[in-house]
């Protein structure tokens, strides 16, 4: 399937690069429907890889790349069914999204996240599976999960630890603060900063450059420098599920969901 147009995302091949566009209002919150379509993409990826040398992941929404997991759905999941079943559902969701993230992480082509605006939580984790992050000048990153009594659950901590120094990881994780592109580039997360609205164009230029090289060599180089922390990724799911079943998390999610003020994304 060389192109697809779904309810939350679409893909097509443009000049030898797969362009995976996220477009679920309001800011690409990742819930069951997005996961279903991400799984479709992961299943199509081996075939697409024969036709393309790079993958660009981007958002068509003004608000940003992605605000992360769909917290309203996560809250509702805990309300509608009994606790043990809710926990099983959360674990199943995490295992499925990890499988998608791992497929993107190990894809034998160069992957580029072109991000702008809000790149939070699960959205940040989606960017982290990519080989290169190109960020619009107005991009903002955050792991806000501790504010809810949780840790990132889509593979964020092991991948952040893979790419950054541990002191930086602790700062970002334990304060839950958001930070801009200058900081993101300074700590080694973002490789290129684009002008406002130009991240996709810069990503396309980068995809064109990587397309000049022998694909097998590029895939071998990637595999050599980008180990997948499978053991820590599994441990992350266990810790997330241990934390999820506590009343403090339900209260944190309820506070977010029922917040009708202007500041749900601020601490």
């Amino acid at each position: 399937m060389n192109d697809f147009k779904g309810q939350t995302l679409s893909w097509q091949i443009v000049n030898g690069a797969i362009e995976l566009a996220l477009h679920r209002d309001p800011c690409n919150e990742i819930g069951s429907l997005t996961l279903d379509e991400l799984e479709k993409f992961a299943a199509a990826l081996p075939g697409l890889t024969n036709e393309a040398h790079a993958l660009i992941v981007h958002s068509t929404l003004k608000a940003g790349f992605s605000a992360g997991a769909d917290l309203r759905e996560l809250f509702q999941r805990g309300q509608e069914i009994e606790k043990a079943a809710a926990l099983r559902g959360v674990r199943e969701f995490l295992e499925r999204i990890h499988a998608v993230m791992n497929a993107l992480d190990t894809a034998p082509l160069t992957t580029i996240a072109a991000v702008h605006g809000v790149t939070f939580g699960g959205g940040f984790e989606l960017a982290l599976v990519c080989d290169i992050i190109i960020a619009d000048r107005m991009a903002r990153f955050c792991f806000p999960e501790l504010r809810l009594g949780l840790i990132p659950g889509f593979g964020g901590i092991p991948r952040l630890k893979r790419d950054l120094g541990n002191a930086v990881v602790r700062d970002l994780l334990l304060t839950g603060r958001s930070f801009n592109v200058m900081k993101a580039q300074q700590i080694g997360l973002v490789s290129q900063i684009a002008a406002e609205g130009e991240a996709l164009r810069v990503a396309r230029a980068t995809a064109s450059q990587v397309g000049k090289f022998d694909r097998r060599t590029a895939a071998a180089a990637k595999e050599f420098v980008k180990p997948i922390p499978y053991k820590e990724l599994k441990r992350e799911i266990d810790i997330f599920c241990d934390l999820y079943s506590r009343p403090a998390v339900e209260e944190g999610l309820r506070k977010f969901v029922e917040n009708e003020g202007p500041q749900p994304y601020l601490p």
């Binding site: 605000a67 809000v118 107005m138 500041q263 749900p264 994304y265 601020l266």
Partner: peptide, 9 residues
């Protein structure tokens, strides 16, 4: 809040 983050940036 999203626009407030934009202003902060």
């Amino acid at each position: 809040s999203l626009q407030a983050l934009d202003l902060l940036t």
